[in-house]
Simulated assay, not measured.
Amino acid sequence: MTADLSPTLSSEALPSPMLQLLLTRRSHLALTLAEPAPSDETLRLLLTAAARVPDHGKLAPWRFIVLRGAARQTYGDRLVALLEAREGPLSDERKAQEAGRFVRAPLVVAVVSCAAEHPKIPLWEQELSAGAVCMNLLTATHAAGFAGQWLSEWMAFDDEAAALLGVEGTERIAGFIHIGSPTHTPADRARPDLDSLITEWTGA
């Protein structure tokens, strides 16, 4: 069972703006994101913030691929071609769906996990770091006055689709962060019941 657990705070315990952001951040559906997207300068700041994550061994086991402008449609068209080569001609509805996946938002950043075998740093820690990059980027996007949604969809798990973006070897797409300007305020969703998720270990 889930419940909306918006914190109850006294006037003496009002959160800082940063904590307030974390307590109220909400994903916006990619379809609802509009121009303008962040400028080049703002995008660089967002990616700088995204990269400030725990990173055991300072490996930076992740990288970014930016899709914007006409490149978004080009990638969608190549996904259609890839699927038709496998499955035969797609229906008009399916073709429009696949071709339009990356034009829903004005900017998409693919976060690529570059985790690799290391004598001291487990792969799992490197992959977690890439996930933290996705979340940092999403949070930074909202802090900058924009909105975003973290999606994966089938392209993130398909080697040929990922290769179209230059993802290679053991690299994997951790997520596609769709970014743009919000067009409305989405309603919050039910949040987990924290009491059911918290245990305190006492050693007893």
Score class of each variant (00 low, 15 high):
27 S>L: 06
28 H>T: 12
28 H>L: 05
28 H>P: 12
29 L>N: 11
29 L>D: 09
29 L>W: 01
30 A>M: 08
30 A>F: 06
31 L>S: 12
31 L>M: 13
32 T>I: 00
32 T>V: 14
34 A>F: 13
34 A>P: 05
34 A>G: 08
35 E>Y: 11
36 P>H: 15
36 P>L: 15
37 A>R: 15
38 P>Y: 09
38 P>C: 09
39 S>P: 09
40 D>C: 09
40 D>T: 14
41 E>K: 02
42 T>Y: 02
42 T>R: 07
42 T>N: 07
43 L>Q: 09
44 R>V: 12
45 L>F: 10
45 L>P: 02
46 L>F: 13
46 L>N: 00
47 L>K: 01
47 L>H: 04
48 T>M: 10
50 A>F: 01
50 A>E: 01
51 A>I: 08
51 A>F: 05
52 R>N: 06
53 V>N: 02
54 P>V: 07
54 P>S: 12
56 H>W: 05
56 H>K: 14
57 G>V: 12
59 L>C: 10
60 A>C: 06
61 P>R: 09
62 W>Q: 03
63 R>V: 12
63 R>H: 14
64 F>Q: 00
64 F>L: 07
66 V>T: 10
67 L>S: 02
68 R>Q: 13
69 G>K: 05
70 A>E: 14
70 A>R: 14
70 A>Y: 01
72 R>N: 11
72 R>Q: 12
73 Q>Y: 00
74 T>K: 09
75 Y>M: 08
77 D>S: 06
79 L>K: 00
80 V>A: 04
82 L>D: 06
82 L>N: 09
83 L>K: 12
83 L>Y: 07
84 E>A: 05
84 E>N: 07
85 A>Q: 15
85 A>F: 07
87 E>F: 10
88 G>I: 07
89 P>N: 03
89 P>L: 06
90 L>K: 09
90 L>R: 13
91 S>Y: 04
91 S>N: 04
91 S>D: 11
93 E>I: 11
93 E>K: 12
94 R>C: 00
95 K>R: 15
96 A>N: 12
96 A>D: 13
96 A>P: 02
97 Q>R: 12
97 Q>G: 03
97 Q>C: 03
99 A>R: 11
101 R>A: 04
101 R>K: 14
103 V>I: 15
104 R>D: 11
105 A>F: 01
105 A>C: 05
106 P>R: 13
106 P>W: 13
107 L>Q: 03
108 V>A: 06
108 V>R: 00
109 V>C: 00
109 V>H: 01
109 V>G: 03
110 A>Q: 03
110 A>D: 10
111 V>W: 00
111 V>E: 01
111 V>H: 01
112 V>P: 00
112 V>F: 06
112 V>N: 00
112 V>M: 02
